[in-house]
């Protein structure tokens, strides 16, 4: 999802780095050695990673909202238990990632503040509504599927703590995609109305899922540095193509139609060619004008404010016990 932060420009002034240290740093990366928290790193590398990991963490946290919407209305106890487990995983992924970002010298509280103030972003995909139960299937299948395409190469990211967090996340994520596809499969084998619901969910989530990979390579000039630093391993278009190639046959198995009249298989290249993405819609969602941007931010702020007393009470209790232990 989750590398959209790598497409944005670093607005901080470029700091002059010691060329010798810089060369040694790059040589280490070129030799596929990991960078660990206390190692020297250029300021721009640190800033890029903080922004990227934080946006990834925020995406996991905000990503709980569209799915959480259906927990109380899941069609069976089995579906409810699995959705609950999935949403809990997303919270866990957010926490692994905040912890990884913190190793770069930023606190979780600061990062949460940036999200709530709107200065930090989360993935564009979570600004779309989940209108029917089939959307939960489509999200697991498409959104988590796209996330996996992005996250698998991140396991080899040059920054150790981020790479290690991604290993755990990828292990857990494959259950997410399978539970989504199973929901779609069940709907597609059900009544005509149920199959129509699955088709409708695919229609609404297909293009936003493709947008998750970020702007087309010809428009994303900032990825070159991220690739040189081995934060990113594949370009946006490469990952998007992999996703389309993997997903189209899965849709056919379901008996569903991808909502793209230009979609066709190229025998020569072995790839599925697809139509032009509506980049204006993508830009609007990034600017905060997607269908649910305001609602998501409002819900996050509300949850944060309403949970403040819990954090305060926990801190007060810890203080009290510490004072008692000291007095005893």
């Amino acid at each position: 999802m989750y590398t959209q932060a790598l497409n944005t420009r670093d607005l901080q002034p470029v700091q002059k780095e010691d060329p010798e240290r810089l060369a040694r740093f790059q040589a280490k990366i070129d030799a596929e050695q990991k960078i660990e928290p206390n190692d020297w790193m250029p300021e721009a590398y640190r800033r890029t990673l903080i922004r990227q990991i934080a946006q990834h963490a925020h995406s996991e946290i905000v990503g709980m909202l569209p799915e959480g919407n259906w927990i109380t209305r899941a069609p069976s106890l089995r579906r409810k238990a699995t959705l609950l487990a999935k949403v809990q995983d997303e919270a866990g992924h957010g926490l692994y990632l905040y912890a990884a970002a913190e190793t770069l010298g930023v606190s979780r509280e600061e990062l949460v503040d940036q999200l709530l103030a709107g200065t930090a972003k989360y993935s564009s995909i979570f600004n779309y509504p989940t209108l029917t139960w089939a959307d939960i299937g489509a999200i697991g299948w498409l959104v988590d599927g796209a996330a996996i395409m992005n996250q698998v190469p991140l396991q080899r990211c040059s920054y150790g703590p981020y790479a290690r967090a991604m290993v755990r996340i990828c292990k857990e994520e494959s259950f997410h995609q399978r539970q989504g596809y199973e929901i779609m499969l069940t709907l597609c084998r059900g009544t005509l109305e149920q199959k129509a619901m699955a088709q409708d969910a695919l229609d609404r989530f297909w293009w936003p899922a493709l947008m998750m990979f970020g702007p087309s390579d010809k428009d994303s000039v900032h990825t070159a540095q991220a690739m040189a630093w081995k934060i990113k391993r594949f370009t946006n278009d490469e990952l998007r193509q992999k996703f389309v190639d993997a997903t189209v046959p899965q849709a056919h198995y379901l008996g569903l139609t991808i909502p793209d009249p230009d979609l066709r298989f190229n025998e020569a290249t072995g790839h599925w060619e697809f139509g032009e993405i509506d980049w204006q819609e993508f830009q609007e969602v990034l600017r905060g004008n997607g269908p649910c941007n305001r609602q998501r931010m409002k819900q996050r702020r509300q949850a944060h404010t309403e949970g403040a007393w819990v954090r305060e009470a926990a801190a007060a209790y810890a203080e009290k016990r510490k004072a008692r232990a000291a007095a005893a």
Binding site: L95, Y96, E102, A165, A314, A315, Y317
Partner: peptide
């Protein structure tokens, strides 16, 4: 395996 934030050891 990682880290957590919590007010005290029990939590």
């Amino acid at each position: 395996c990682g880290s957590v934030h919590a007010p005290d050891a029990e939590m």
